[in-house]
């Protein structure tokens, strides 16, 4: 008589399955480690090159032809100005668009059309946004090579990513929450502001962190706009010229003198620290909201 569960057969199969399980586990482990190793190598290289060059003077000096005197002050302050401009602007526009599309607009051909275009825009090369910024902001609105022109261009560049991420986050908010809010007599705006948005903030911020990190590391659109690399003064208003860290770092890496490679490495460390700082602020805000649900 054949038994329903043949023990010996199960054991035989089991071995194969366990091996398969282990193979996949190893494979995914290596996938994780691969990225980590590259990151560690990169950080190790940058930090060893930067030691001895990264000091207070480096943060307080303007660029110079003499490597020992070169500093990142103008670029660091410029990057912060740019972020102070891009972050609120792109968040307002991006989240606004997402709320309209998800909460207010009815599904129609028109919204489908907008949707497709936003997704496509996320894949447009950054240099195209630079050309757009040059024609519309720098020349059309005569903003020139100012913080304002660059900030508007960069906001456009990261906008699609923020819109798409915010839409996903809004969509993930359970409908029961909205229904309950309406049931209590809340209006649409009250529901969005008090119920939907707080629940969606963690998701929105995750997407925005990625988008803003991109904006801080981008150079191509700024080069097209004609943002200078050498500047030895700080912007006083949004109409002043400025420079940003990635442009300064790129310029240093291309120099013939070997010392400038160290200066560039020190610049990269400063850029990384700024990125980590901005990201941790966003993550901190995100965690505060996450605790509520």
């Amino acid at each position: 008589m054949k038994r329903l569960v043949d023990h010996s057969e199960v054991i035989q199969h089991m071995n194969g399955r366990l091996v398969k399980n282990n193979i996949f586990k190893l494979l995914f482990f290596f996938a994780t480690v691969f990225g980590l190793i590259i990151l560690v190598v990169l950080l190790y290289r940058v930090f060893t090159q930067a030691t001895g060059w990264l000091n207070i003077d480096f943060l307080q000096n303007f660029p110079s032809r003499i490597p020992e005197r070169a500093g990142i002050k103008a670029a660091l302050v410029g990057s912060i100005w740019l972020m102070a401009m891009v972050a609120p602007l792109s968040l307002f526009l991006g989240v606004g668009t997402a709320i309209y599309l998800e909460e207010y607009a009815k599904k129609s051909r028109f919204t489908d059309f907008i949707q497709t275009n936003i997704s496509n825009l996320a894949g447009v090369p950054s240099i195209v946004f630079g050309l757009l910024g040059l024609t519309v902001f720098a020349r059309g609105m005569e903003l020139g090579r100012s913080v304002l022109a660059a900030g508007l261009t960069m906001s456009l560049l990261v906008l699609p990513v923020i819109v798409v991420a915010s839409q996903e986050a809004l969509r993930a908010v359970p409908n029961q929450l909205r229904e309950a809010s309406y049931g209590m007599g809340a209006t649409k705006w009250q529901t969005i502001y008090r119920v939907v948005l707080p629940a969606a903030v963690p998701g929105i911020l995750t997407g925005s962190i990625l988008a803003l990190s991109r904006a801080i590391g981008e150079t191509a659109p700024l080069i097209v706009l004609g943002i200078p690399t050498f500047i030895a003064y700080l912007p006083k208003s949004v109409f002043d010229t400025f420079t940003v860290m990635p442009m300064q770092i790129y310029n240093w890496t291309g120099r013939p003198q070997e010392e400038f490679q160290h200066v560039a490495a020190a610049g990269i460390v400063v850029l990384l620290v700024l990125l980590v700082m901005l990201n941790s602020i966003a993550i901190w805000i995100r965690n505060k909201f996450q605790k509520r649900f």
Binding site: S64, R145, P228, T229, I231, A232, Y233, G254
Partner: peptide
């Protein structure tokens, strides 16, 4: 960008003498 290092040096020294003048040098 080939000429840039010369102009960076020039601008750096010039602005030490004329701090009121704002020289910016790009590399398009």
């Amino acid at each position: 960008s080939t000429v840039f290092p010369i102009m960076e040096a020039t601008a750096e020294e010039y602005m030490a003498e004329q701090p009121g003048v704002k020289v910016s040098v790009g590399v398009s």
